[in-house]
Design a protein around this nucleic acid. Structure first.
Lengths: 176, 176
DNA sequence: TCATGATATATCATTATGATATATGAAACT
DNA sequence: AGTTTCATATATCATAATGATATATCATGA
């Protein structure tokens, strides 16, 4: 019952906003969803095929140009998407290699641990700046409903990353 | 180069603390690492086999009782673990279905979105209580080095979850 | 004595990743 | 005009990992 092939719904969700090619779907995931989701070509293209066979999306091959394949959602696809959206969430998962390496800090030693914390802190600081920019831009266009939900996820990122930075300070204190 | 089969190092890391059976490894992951890592029997048992063949772990089958197989780390295993621990982190990843469903809130509608936020908030509150208990207990036994690193990861959980709860309030305000 | 749940090992279909291959269009420079 | 370079675009595959399931034993207590 689990293993609902989440990539199905990621694709249907993105197509519910606008028609896209497989390549554009990958870009959207890497840009807008990257804080809380990921997806690879290796799952996107085969899934577009099966979604089309199941009548959840339609494809139109461009006759001119390089003949790129533009997918759009069907009524059936939209229905299945809505059904899934209403179901309770199955899994929220964090998978932080940084924490895994810290946990085994006994083998690594204090210096090594501090190096990982330092690198982590720098990466998070950079990301946080980006998110704050996104949020500022989104606040300007809040009239469109879609942007409100996007902003919600960006704000989640901001709150999280601020907490992570706060933890970095605590961690460095605790270790010294 | 990537795809380093992380489960290898999870197992080696846990065995660097003490000898364990496959079943106990699974339990440790579910108990101590569950905030930032996961692992299934389907990866643990086959990996223990290959780690043994590669001379990274040794097994001892109990002669009495049900003959359970207790694994311990070898010098070679400890060396490979340390090498990996020193390498820069490849990936810290968050995969929150809750945020995915929120992002497509346009299709789901405000009520549905609020329901997901509500459920999320409750789950996080429960988890946070647990983490605060763990932290309090760990603070008492900080003399042991291993506990210090464990505490570090628990504190990460606490800071994160407090931020998530803070975000829940913001989100509910923004939607109403 | 028997039922139940925890312990313990193992396997497999399914999902997804990350790497790679291949090719075209557009822009930039020389 | 020719060519290099990068973004666009589709596709495939070996490998990793999950989640479900099967099977069996031990411990507990009713």
């Amino acid at each position: 019952m689990a293993n609902e092939k989440k990539i199905n719904y990621v694709i249907l969700g993105l197509l519910s906003h606008e028609p896209l090619t497989g390549y554009e779907i990958k870009k959207k995931i890497d840009q807008s969803l990257r804080f809380f989701w990921s997806g690879s070509y290796g799952s996107i293209y085969p899934t577009l095929d099966t979604l089309e066979k199941d009548g959840c999306v339609e494809k139109k091959e461009e006759s001119s140009g390089r003949g790129k394949i533009i997918y759009s959602i069907t009524e059936r696809g939209r229905m299945l998407l809505k059904e899934w959206l209403m179901k309770p969430v199955e899994k929220d998962e964090l998978r932080y290699e940084t924490l895994l390496k810290l946990f085994f800090g006994g083998e690594l030693g204090k210096e090594g641990v501090l190096t990982h914390i330092q690198r982590f802190e720098e990466k998070i600081k950079q990301e946080l700046l980006l998110f704050e920019m996104y949020a500022a831009n989104l606040e300007k266009v809040l009239d469109e409903e879609e942007h409100k939900y996007y902003l919600l996820t960006v704000k989640f990122g901001i709150e999280s990353y601020r907490a992570f930075l706060n933890w970095c300070e605590q961690a460095k204190t605790l270790l010294s």
